[in-house]
Design a protein around this nucleic acid. Sequence first.
DNA 1: ATCATAAATTAGATTAGTCTAATTTTTTAT
DNA 2: ATAAAAAATTAGACTAATCTAATTTATGAT
Lengths: 218, 218
Amino acid sequence: MNSFTEENYLKAIYKLQEQSSEGVANSDLAKALGVQSASVTAMLKKMAQKKLINYEKSKGFRLTDKGKQIAVNIIRKHRLWEVFLVEKLGFGWDEVHEIAEQLEHIHSEALINRLDVYLGHPKADPHGDPIPNANGIFAKSKSILLSETEKGMQGKFVGVTDHSPSFLTYLDKVGLSLGDTISVKSIEDFDKTYTLQLKGKKEITVSNKVANSLLIAG
Amino acid sequence: MNSFTEENYLKAIYKLQEQSSEGVANSDLAKALGVQSASVTAMLKKMAQKKLINYEKSKGFRLTDKGKQIAVNIIRKHRLWEVFLVEKLGFGWDEVHEIAEQLEHIHSEALINRLDVYLGHPKADPHGDPIPNANGIFAKSKSILLSETEKGMQGKFVGVTDHSPSFLTYLDKVGLSLGDTISVKSIEDFDKTYTLQLKGKKEITVSNKVANSLLIAG
DNA sequence: ATCATAAATTAGATTAGTCTAATTTTTTAT
DNA sequence: ATAAAAAATTAGACTAATCTAATTTATGAT
């Protein structure tokens, strides 16, 4: 069995290697985990011995299949628990991350499979992030950033790339919820501010920074 | 915040001190936790410094109010999670203990309060053990062991004192479930075997060992 | 009351995960 | 190509929780 610490390393490595296709750097991992890089070096050695990562000094490293499988399973658990917290317990989408960070480390295959059934095999968590199935397969979704769309585009708000509570509560405040249909009314020339039409009636204006954190599907 | 280890010590001490009204012995705690008594000595020192227990060398020790409060809260969480696992996820009452041992250490007051609401403020876990409220107050229940009842007695099966999966699956097999109304048809003289009438129809015979693990309320 | 046994404590090690400070290796810029 | 900067590693120490072995303290039976 893997310790919480090891599981957190696996998860962090997975996320880093997904977004770069390169080997992961010690320093990036150290920053992601909030530890010193000396700690990372020590931990990587142990994880390499356990065949969780491929590791050569100063070369950048990647998860092995075994490491990846564990990492994906933790992400699966994290996201299923987030669905539970929002759908069943009524938490806001801005409140669930920290609790799910704890729940993701509960070890029980039976538990997570039953939870999955109980929740109706959800395909995405409350932030729109895909939930891998029990075999670790993610449903591929083809969404793009709102900031990459043009005037006149119409689509559905399906996810966020910024998961911070402050951003999420901002979206709540302006009345933007996952699943909403939106169209781009106009894009300000000088600062790329987006004016959006929501569900036929409400109209809102958001900064480019916001547009850059919203995922839209056709 | 308390570590898992510390929480497990608190819980174990609580259970030991409840069932004896005397100070708890180092050796009993060591046995309960499956560690050496040298480890217990070391841990008790730390916990005494944190004012979680009252501890004098070789004297037997007890939880302080602060320690007790934490211990009871862990028990509350354990039992609420057990209700969730059985009522919502469909686990058997013999399968939930180990998972709840992990879930009880999740730190979030909001989570446990919402879970409590979601479950409808249950008063007892799937084994009939009382669930303390958010203030740590247990509803007093006045049950007795079946082995202490006499022929002709009629009552309701409200709890078990043996929580082992083997005992619980045995009860499933003979068809005895929490809440069942039973009456004592006869008690064998030479070995105190009990013959019981269940819910008006089924009749079963159980050993005194079993009768000694079943709690009955008038 | 004293001697044997049981219980508790101390001393010293170990493992996991972390740290700081020093050093080495790698990368980048000129 | 080499110096400066950045990244990674090593060395050595710390904390939490555990262990074994040795010793001390308590208990209990004659």
